[in-house]
Computed example of a mutant assay.
Amino acid sequence: MSLPPFKSGSLLTMGIELELMLLDPQDYTMAPAALTLLDLMRVRQDTRFVFCPEITQGMVEFNSAVHPRWHSLRDELTGMRGFLGALAAECGILIAGGGTHALQDWKDREVFPAERYEWLGEKFGYLSKKFTIFGMHVHIGAGDAETAIALIRAVTPWVPLLIALSAASPYQEGVDTGFACSRLHSLTPFPYAGAMPDFADWGECERYINGLIELGIVGSIKDFYWDVRPKPEFGTIEFRIFDTPLSVDLAADMAGLVQVLCAAMLDSQPLTALHDSYPYNRFQACRYGLAGEMVNPYTGERQSFVDAAEALLKQLEPYARELDATAVLQRMRQRLHDDMLSDVMRNIVAEADGDLKRLLAWQAQCFGAGEILLPGTTKVAAASPV
């Protein structure tokens, strides 16, 4: 089955997919409760919010509506949080964000009984269960197919910086991985992961994908795990690099930042990269978060992620004003000077003498409260609405 036609639509609209973990409140293990939770939603017949299963039963995915601005997305996410929290309480479970479950063992995961997920289980074996990770996918309206390809090319150099800003997955299988974002490395073994090839135009992209479909190597665009990929049936480009934010306010901020970045890139002159620094920059972001560095692919200049982010946020200011997102940039700028979320998570574990259950309890508390709570004192500034 070949790619569908690219759906023409509005530029710079936004929507998100949010993968959330289901926790047992007794021991904070993953609760295989997706079927129960989704069945309860069907019984309620509440059509305000759209949820669907994910590959294993300890997670569900929320799909937002299409929004023109970040604040209407935040309003929907706030309503969703209350709705989901009440249903989860009826099911005897908790909901949490974050990119990984610190204690989960892939051998214990149960694949959700749906045709695609069972097919993935057969195709990828144990990797399909290790795919129980949690991300936020941000969709931005591209207008048309050619704009989508040009926009992906323009935003790609900044993707590692977005990874560094959102990194919140330092633990896997009971171990501190040493990475700020370990989630993305769970995708590395899959075919067609990482950066999308630098296609000249939509026609080249379409021929590439359709050729692999015809060979039976892939079934659809879903089998490409590129960091940013076109989504022709939606008329969007899809950013797949964010760890699930710990609060819905932070999720709205991250999506708002992506929208502003895309607006700026649409208005910029196309540049030709002189250096293939993307793999290095992506590794730095995953390994060190904002404490890492990046090499500018156009100039070869080496700078810290913090310095690169300060310069980028300054560049984005006029576009943020047009999109009513100045507050988003203010909070992102503050994040550059706060402790990284991965470090906050490590501090919580250290203060609990290595008890990872304390970390998972905190993650659930943050989602329930709608804000990132620093233990005992204040909030992470970037999570609080203005």
Score class of each variant (00 low, 15 high):
F6K: 02
A263W: 00
K357Q: 15
E110H: 15
K123P: 06
E204S: 14
I213F: 00
R287N: 04
Y126Q: 13
M21W: 05
L261Y: 07
T244N: 06
L87K: 00
E54Y: 10
T47M: 09
A352E: 04
Y117A: 13
P25C: 11
E371Y: 13
G121N: 12
H67Q: 04
M294T: 02
P157D: 01
A361Q: 15
S247F: 00
Q334V: 00
L162W: 08
I241L: 14
Q284N: 14
Q172D: 12
Q303R: 14
A31M: 08
L323S: 05
L84K: 08
Y208R: 08
E61R: 10
L373D: 06
S2I: 05
A369V: 02
V50R: 11
Q284T: 03
R44L: 13
R335V: 03
Q284V: 00
P270V: 05
S220K: 10
S304Y: 01
Y171H: 11
D355S: 09
G143C: 12
R183N: 11
E371M: 13
G79Y: 05
G216I: 08
P25L: 10
A193M: 10
D27E: 10
V306P: 06
N281H: 09
A31C: 08
H137Y: 03
V50W: 04
A350L: 09
A33R: 14
A195E: 14
P5R: 13
W119L: 13
P4Y: 00
S277H: 05
L20V: 09
P53M: 09
D338L: 07
P4G: 08
Q269A: 14
R321T: 14
Q363W: 01
L257F: 12
A31D: 06
G203W: 02
G92W: 09
L359S: 07
F283P: 05
I372R: 02
G289C: 10
L94G: 04
V111C: 07
V228C: 02
A369I: 01
A308H: 03
K357P: 06
S304R: 07
E371F: 11
Q259L: 00
Q57F: 11
W158G: 01
F134H: 12
P25H: 11
L120D: 01
M340N: 14
